[in-house]
Computed example of a mutant assay.
Amino acid sequence: MEAPSFLDFIIHVTGLPGYLVFSWFMILVIISLALIVRSSLKLMPEGIQNVAESVVYGIYSFVEDILGKEETPKHFPLLATLAIVIFFYNIVELIPGFIPPTSNLNTTLSMALIVFLYYQFLGFKRHGIKYIKHFMGPVWWLVPLILPIEIIGHFARIVSLSVRLFGNIFGDDLLLAVVFFLAPWLVPLPVMALVLLAASIQAFIFFLLSTLYIADAINEAH
């Protein structure tokens, strides 16, 4: 399946990777939808405003249940952005010819690095040098054993976040391409419904783990 002509033209002229062009395109779509919602705000929400408010309120309430009322406003913008962007990045695979940006490891790895650096920064900002206690275990004589395990575990979070998302979306995209090729008349509803479900779940898992990592960093070590 070929990319839409205008995106293919941009890829050809600029020489940029396809996943990057599709990433920027989907960001423009998200910004455009946000501006449309903002320009038509009503006291009694309806239509797209109702959907947007429900999504934002649902994300905010979920984050608040984990981080608390005081911390949520500080971290909600990043977490909500990740959730919404990843969801749109994932579901674009349902459009023939579109490449889901999250089917490329560069995209998922960059987002995982942002989360990793952000929560580590929060940990040191909140606790100072005492943040190291998060890596040392419950008793001092276990430090030589626990410290390397904790360090490896934290770096493994980057791999976990990026590879899980990449692998699932890449697999879904490949499945759709194969089924479209072999039996295009059978594809639409069942397969696309499963892909939509998987795309939504993967966006939620990335968002959930990011929230839990932040909560772990800002809480006191025990």
Rank of each mutant, 00 (worst) to 15 (best):
P4Q: 03
P4G: 06
S5K: 06
S5T: 02
F6C: 00
L7V: 07
D8T: 05
F9V: 10
I11P: 11
V13G: 07
T14P: 13
T14C: 10
T14M: 07
G15K: 03
L16P: 00
P17D: 10
L20S: 03
F25A: 12
V29A: 05
L33V: 13
L33N: 08
A34R: 00
R38M: 05
S40G: 03
K42A: 11
L43H: 15
L43C: 05
L43I: 15
E46Y: 05
E46S: 12
I48Q: 03
Q49R: 10
V51F: 11
A52S: 10
A52V: 11
A52C: 09
A52I: 06
E53G: 08
V56E: 02
Y57G: 07
G58H: 06
V63Q: 06
L67P: 01
E70H: 04
P73Q: 06
P73Y: 04
H75P: 01
F76C: 06
F76A: 03
L79S: 01
A80Y: 02
A80R: 05
T81A: 08
T81F: 13
A83V: 05
A83S: 11
A83P: 02
I84G: 04
I86S: 11
I86E: 03
I86V: 11
F87N: 05
I91R: 12
V92I: 13
V92D: 01
E93Q: 12
G97Y: 12
G97K: 11
F98D: 08
F98M: 15
P101H: 02
S103H: 03
S103M: 06
S103C: 15
N104I: 01
L105F: 01
L105H: 00
T107C: 03
T108C: 08
L109E: 04
L109V: 12
S110A: 14
I114V: 14
I114P: 04
F116V: 00
F116D: 02
F116N: 00
L117A: 13
Y119W: 15
Y119I: 04
L122Q: 15
F124C: 00
F124T: 00
K125N: 00
H127C: 08
H127V: 09
G128Y: 03
I129K: 13
K130P: 02
K130L: 14
Y131M: 06
I132D: 03
I132V: 15
K133H: 06
K133Q: 09
F135T: 03
V143Q: 15
P144V: 14
P144N: 09
I149L: 13
E150H: 10
E150V: 03
I151L: 15
I152N: 05
H154V: 06
R157E: 01
S160I: 11
S160K: 13
S162Y: 13
V163A: 11
F166E: 04
F166T: 02
G167A: 05
G167M: 04
N168L: 14
L175E: 08
L175G: 12
L176N: 05
F181A: 13
W185L: 12
W185C: 14
L186H: 07
L186T: 11
V187P: 06
V191S: 01
V191P: 02
M192S: 08
A193Y: 10
L197T: 09
L197A: 10
I201C: 09
I201A: 12
I201G: 01
F206C: 09
S210W: 14
T211W: 13
L212T: 04
A215E: 13
D216I: 02
I218Q: 01
N219Y: 05
N219E: 10
E220Y: 09
E220W: 07
